[in-house]
Computed example of a mutant assay.
Amino acid sequence: MKVITFDRFKPGVTMETITPFLPEEVANVWRLWKAGIVRENYARADEPGVVIVFEVDSVEEAKRYVDDFPLSKKGFLEWSYIPVIAPLPLEALMDASVDVSEPYDRTR
């Protein structure tokens, strides 16, 4: 299962607050990425923060990893969790007359 997580700074926390701890935070995420636990990592475009996609068995497992992040341990962040799974085969919802054969990308 994939779990999409995103953080928000708690009130009063700024980039200046967290900057001294970023090398340790980034190294922690990088180790999890190399272990195949973090699949994707993004900077938020709408506000300071990150979006991390975990490959784990449950939201609880993702929470255990997030709780171990240095910035989480310091109480600087609030996290949200969205578990996602592969959608049911979309082709099953289509009429048999709908063409779903190759080439799949027909924009070229």
Rank of each mutant, 00 (worst) to 15 (best):
D99C: 15
N28P: 00
R106G: 07
I52G: 02
L93P: 00
G36K: 04
E102Q: 03
V56L: 02
V84H: 01
M15F: 13
A43V: 11
G12K: 13
A86H: 11
N41E: 04
K63T: 02
W30T: 05
A92L: 12
M94N: 07
N41W: 14
D105Y: 09
E40G: 03
I82C: 12
T19Y: 05
D46N: 14
F76C: 07
N41K: 02
T14I: 13
Y65E: 01
R64L: 06
L22D: 09
L93K: 03
P89E: 14
L88F: 12
S101A: 15
I37D: 03
L93D: 11
V66M: 04
N28C: 04
Y65F: 13
P83I: 08
E24S: 07
W33T: 04
E60V: 06
V26E: 04
W33M: 11
T19R: 12
A35G: 00
R39I: 06
S58C: 07
L90Y: 15
P70F: 09
P48L: 13
E40V: 00
I82K: 14
W33I: 02
P103D: 15
E25T: 03
Y42E: 09
Y65C: 01
I82R: 14
K73L: 10
V13W: 05
N28K: 14
V50H: 08
D68N: 14
A27M: 06
V38T: 04
V100D: 07
I52H: 03
Y81C: 02
S97T: 10
Y42M: 12
I52P: 01
D105H: 09
A86N: 14
K63I: 08
W33G: 03
G49K: 07
I18D: 14
W33Q: 11
E47R: 15
V100W: 12
P87T: 06
L32H: 08
D68G: 10
I18A: 12
E55G: 01
L22N: 12
E55H: 01
N41H: 04
P103F: 13
L88E: 13
L93T: 09
A27W: 07
A27D: 11
E24Q: 13
V38A: 08
I82N: 11
L32V: 01
G49T: 07
P87W: 08
V98P: 09
D67R: 07
V100K: 11
S80A: 08
P23Q: 10
V59E: 04
D68I: 00
F76E: 04
E60M: 10
Y104K: 06
M15E: 15
V53Q: 08
Y104G: 08
D57T: 14
V56H: 00
V13N: 06
V66N: 00
E61R: 13
E47N: 15
D105M: 08
P20S: 03
A92V: 14
L90W: 15
I85H: 10
V13G: 03
L71A: 09
V50P: 02
E47Q: 15
E25W: 03
S80G: 06
A35W: 01
V59A: 02
D95H: 13
K73Y: 03
E78Q: 10
P83C: 07
F69E: 13
R44Y: 05
N41I: 05
R106H: 08
T17S: 14
F69Q: 06
M94V: 02
V38L: 05
V59K: 01
V84L: 03
T14S: 15
A92H: 13
D99I: 12
E60G: 10
F54T: 00
A43T: 10
I37L: 11
K63L: 04
L93C: 05
T14D: 14
E40D: 11
T14W: 12
E102L: 05
